[in-house]
Computed example of a mutant assay.
Amino acid sequence: MSLDVLSEEALDRFRESADAGKVNFTIKYLPFQLYPEASKEGEDKYEWYRKTRYGDSEEKMKMYETLMKAYGAGVDIKFKFHGTVANTLDAHRVIQHFQEEKGSDVADRLIKSLYSQYFENEKHPSTDETLLKATADAGIPEAEAKAFIEDHNEGLMDTKLAIREQKGNGIDAVPYIVIEGKRRDITLEGAKEIEEYEKALHQIVKESA
């Protein structure tokens, strides 16, 4: 259950609305891997997407690239499509640890840095270098961050168990977002327009009155 870049923009917009003072939303990130079989070393992102998602069709891949760039332009995100796609387990391990230790705001800054590095700067999603930059961007002291990141076993079992729990809950796609309310929860699965996320946030406020 993680926020994608468009739902983050929706939440930023909500916080500037008249409803923002009525309900306080706290973000909690839970780990989930779409491709747990991906190698740690990884492979070229563009080639991987073209072969596994678009039947090795250059035309379809170009269409996807054009669509994502258009989405990104609307929220000031400059998507790039090379770099490395790889196993993200270490990134989840770091996010979960520092979310627990330092709270949701730090976890949010970690996520934003990881998104920017991967989607805009074509960085590997979970090398020590990537993770150290993300923790620095989140304001975590370097010595503390480095000690945890370089001990690849610390927190690993808990993260794997949390991923297994999400799979047991029937989650098989991302983003998967649950907005908890007083009367009911609203679940949004798969990519949505910003307006759909905003509508759900305001609906929770309405029902919580």
Rank of each mutant, 00 (worst) to 15 (best):
D4G: 01
D4F: 06
V5K: 00
L6H: 06
S7K: 04
E8G: 02
L11C: 02
L11F: 01
D12P: 02
D12C: 07
D19R: 13
G21F: 15
N24F: 11
N24V: 11
I27C: 06
Y29G: 08
L30D: 07
L30G: 01
Y35D: 01
E37A: 10
S39F: 09
K40R: 12
K40H: 08
E43C: 14
D44T: 10
Y46R: 07
Y49V: 07
K51E: 14
D56V: 11
K60H: 00
K62N: 09
K62P: 02
M63T: 09
Y71H: 03
G72L: 07
G74L: 11
K78R: 08
F81W: 00
G83D: 03
G83A: 05
A86R: 00
T88V: 12
T88E: 08
A91L: 12
A91S: 09
V94M: 13
Q96E: 15
H97F: 15
H97I: 14
Q99E: 11
L110F: 15
K112V: 10
S113E: 08
L114S: 01
Y115K: 10
S116V: 09
Q117L: 15
E122C: 14
K133W: 10
K133S: 15
G139I: 15
I140M: 14
A143K: 15
A143T: 14
A143W: 10
A143Y: 11
F148G: 05
E154D: 11
D158V: 11
T159N: 02
L161V: 06
A162Y: 02
R164P: 02
E165D: 11
N169M: 09
V174S: 06
V174F: 09
E180N: 00
G181Y: 02
D185C: 01
L188K: 05
E189Q: 05
E189M: 05
I194M: 02
E195P: 02
Y197I: 04
K199G: 02
H202N: 04
H202F: 13
V205R: 04
V205L: 13
E207M: 09
S208A: 13
